[in-house]
């Protein structure tokens, strides 16, 4: 089975285009693929608990999508474990590399 790894580096607060990537992620999952969303850089900003994007993470997680946020990007932005949305798991480059190197994985950076 093909897996999709979507890497979101952009801040959704910064763009009117912020639905594009989550819709893509969800649409891929709906086609039955193992789908992972990995937040990195300013892409982790909406993962702060209480952000206006909390509902979006819940929706994606309930659809069976695993959501990670890069640990360095979180720490750099003072988003600690207690501050992080409950649907988002902190993960490092080791996890990202594992996901990338999983056979039959298509990796898409945004």
């Amino acid at each position: 089975m093909t897996a999709y790894l979507y890497i979101e580096s952009r801040d959704p607060f910064d763009s009117a285009d912020s639905r594009y990537f989550p819709d893509l992620v969800k649409g891929t999952r709906e086609r039955g693929h193992k789908t992972t969303l990995f937040l990195v850089q300013n892409g982790v900003l909406p993962a702060r608990k209480g952000s206006q994007f909390s509902d979006r993470f819940r929706e994606l997680a309930e659809a069976g999508i695993t959501i990670y946020a890069d640990d360095f990007s979180l720490a750099e932005r003072a988003i600690g474990a207690a501050d992080t949305d409950s649907h988002v798991q902190s993960a490092g480059m080791d996890r990202l590399l594992d996901l990338l190197l999983e056979p039959d994985t298509k990796a898409v950076w945004h």
């Binding site: 580096s9 850089q41 480059m93 080791d94 590399l97």
Partner: peptide
């Protein structure tokens, strides 16, 4: 850009593991 840092981190991780 922050992407340069992320790329270097990823390369470091891969090489550290012998990839």
């Amino acid at each position: 850009k922050a992407a340069s840092t992320t790329a270097l981190r990823l390369i470091h991780e891969a090489l550290s593991r012998g990839h």
